[in-house]
Design a protein around this nucleic acid. Sequence first.
DNA 1: ACAGTATTTATCCAACGGGTTAATTTCTCG
DNA 2: CGAGAAATTAACCCGTTGGATAAATACTGT
Lengths: 235, 235
Amino acid sequence: MAKAKRVLKWQRDPEGMRIRILEAAKQEFAAHGLAGARVDRIAANAGANKRMLYYHIGNKEDLYLEVLEGAYEQIRAEERGLDLEHLDPPEAIERLIDFTWNYFIRNPEFLALLNTENLAKARHLKRSTKVKSMHSPFVEMIRTVVNRGVESGDFRVAVDPVQLYISIAGLCFFYLSNSATLSVIFGRDLLKKEARDERLAHMVALVLAALTGKSTADFGKPKPAGLRAPAHQPV
Amino acid sequence: MAKAKRVLKWQRDPEGMRIRILEAAKQEFAAHGLAGARVDRIAANAGANKRMLYYHIGNKEDLYLEVLEGAYEQIRAEERGLDLEHLDPPEAIERLIDFTWNYFIRNPEFLALLNTENLAKARHLKRSTKVKSMHSPFVEMIRTVVNRGVESGDFRVAVDPVQLYISIAGLCFFYLSNSATLSVIFGRDLLKKEARDERLAHMVALVLAALTGKSTADFGKPKPAGLRAPAHQPV
DNA sequence: ACAGTATTTATCCAACGGGTTAATTTCTCG
DNA sequence: CGAGAAATTAACCCGTTGGATAAATACTGT
């Protein structure tokens, strides 16, 4: 048993504190929006005193901006890790969709933060030089993938990469960000595994069919009778 | 000049008042979200006293739910007015996209309200029997359109109408709802007329290409050099 | 060991914001 | 016309919340 040098009332850990505060803030802003977020809750969930927020970062809006910038940094970093260069075009597009989809699923706070920021008309983002300089590598990636695809004959048209990027993001984003209301409206749980898998297949098929002209795989095949979701909801 | 029967300090108008309150509330909730909305501002913008809100409708959440229900009612009503029955399938799909797109453009508050409600995990919608019984006629419309398209040979695949509906809505929704942040990121105004037209063309081409297999029209053609947006922004 | 600094805590407060009370004015209808 | 109902107003209440102050506690270099 390691003998503690001393019994401490608390551990000093400036960097860790900062991180814990930002993480708690991310959860809070994602869950309640900017106006709905409570500074006290952030402090409590960070295991900190409220004064620490102001000491380490600043006021509520500073906190929010830092969280937002961090969220963009994170996705941009992961995007860069995805090299589509050596895949043949259709595979590259599929991989792009797959990544976007799963990133959104793994980071629901990111979706919420974007919505919050758009509610604010991107007021904070506009002031953030940091984010404005962080261009998504996807647009250029897509441009080259599309060009390669057209040359190789895989794709029929040279689609505008920005439009395609927005379309792919939109197909993923809307489904996940609005899953709560959509699930109520359609009376089924859109987040359960089978529904998510079906959605991913649909999106890939939709985009690839449009690009290649070949109707790939199971593009929106109405589920085969035997496999329809039974009355009871499996976990 | 009509002689007023009497000089009144104020006009009594219960029904008009109710409507003005709901309209003001819609704007307020759309602009600031549920938590950010201010009851006093709603009252002021409705030309009413704060007490009137409670008198005519109820507390803030009642007000919000009523606004949300009204928003759904409105879009469902317009949806029903759109009969796709007598169009041939590709035209019907184009019309559907066109309608969805323009409805969202005409009613930006609807987008904001949906985001707000999703932030709340559809908590209010779940309790609204009214909305739950208002099924979008689109799903059934799409089902028959798709079936007709498959039979006629216009479409290659019998896509799941729910997936297609979500895809079309998503393509439109994401672009418009996130136009603020996207405009910052891409450094161009996505809401100006040319950008909107280009987006609509892209979406129609994308979906129809996927469904029919024929590469229609100007699917994402990178804008012809001569027509690229000039440095100055035309109004 | 000690002085100076960095970090954390406990407490306070003024403004805000949703909601309420009670009085006032207009309407309605016998 | 008059009394009761409906609509509207002004003023207030009180818990919440972002933010501030100052004191206490841990760390650092010398």
